[in-house]
């Protein structure tokens, strides 16, 4: 059954009967909590990915690897990252694979990618809250492409660590103003820090933005943050 399904996958395309792939779906589900079965289905998916597949079939495989994927499938997914057609689904899988190799693959792809593909990779690193990405993302804050710099700021905000906050604060100082993406990112950092009970760090960020020289909405957000921090402490 599974063999037949993988054969069907080779010919699968938009509009094909998804029922033909049901055994793959079942194998993925059955692999939960069973490392050997997981490895087997992962291997078969990677093998399929390396063959000739339609775009729809490739995306199907990526969706399944997002569930069963481990470090072993990263070499199969990494080359897809810089291809505009496949980057999105590759990131979809790599974002969810907990292995550090997945994050490394995303970081490695940064230097090879450009434009929207690069923005997507940056966003995936943020979504993974990958601490090791703080330095490269910090460098991208100075990127000549404003969209990339903005994506880097937001990713650093999503990472929400003391380190990412420090990088953002330095960037704020260098920017000579209060660029909205950096402010947003710092407030995001503060929220994450507060959720992690790092109240001292979170409060420091909020206090900086609660000052009268800040825009009204920023002050409001900061004051709400301060209240939340103080309530948590009380």
């Amino acid at each position: 059954m599974l063999d037949t399904a993988f054969e069907a996958l080779k010919k699968f395309d938009w509009g094909s009967d998804l029922g033909a792939l049901a055994p793959i779906e079942d194998a993925v589900t059955a692999a939960h909590g069973k490392p050997e079965a997981r490895h087997e289905v992962e291997t078969r998916l990677v093998t399929a990915l390396q063959g000739e597949l339609s775009r729809d079939a490739r995306e199907y495989v990526c969706r399944k690897l997002a569930i069963v994927g481990t470090a072993a499938c990263v070499p199969g997914l990494a080359p897809l990252l810089v291809n505009p057609e496949s980057s999105h689904m590759s990131r979809f899988a790599l974002e969810q694979i907990p292995a550090p190799e997945a994050a490394q693959a995303l970081r490695d792809a940064l230097s090879r990618a450009s434009g929207t593909v690069k923005i997507g990779i940056i966003s995936s690193l943020g979504a993974r809250r990958d601490a090791a990405s703080v330095p490269p993302l910090g460098e991208l804050l100075q990127d000549g492409d404003a969209a990339i710099a903005r994506a880097a700021a937001l990713a650093l905000g999503a990472i929400g660590s003391a380190d990412s906050a420090a990088v953002l604060q330095r960037s704020l100082q260098a920017a000579g103003g209060s660029p909205a993406p950096i402010v947003d990112a710092l407030l995001h950092c503060a929220e994450t820090l507060m959720a992690a009970n790092k109240l001292t760090e979170a409060t420091a960020i909020y206090q900086a933005f609660a000052q009268d020289n800040q825009p009204r909405l920023v002050r409001l957000a900061a004051n709400r943050g301060l209240l939340a921090c103080a309530s948590k402490q009380a």
Partner: peptide, 24 residues
Amino acid sequence: LPSILVLTLLAGLTQFVRADDKPS
């Protein structure tokens, strides 16, 4: 402005640490 912000941030941090004694 950035310098003010950083100073404020540091001041806030100090105040916060001091406030640890009487959080409420």
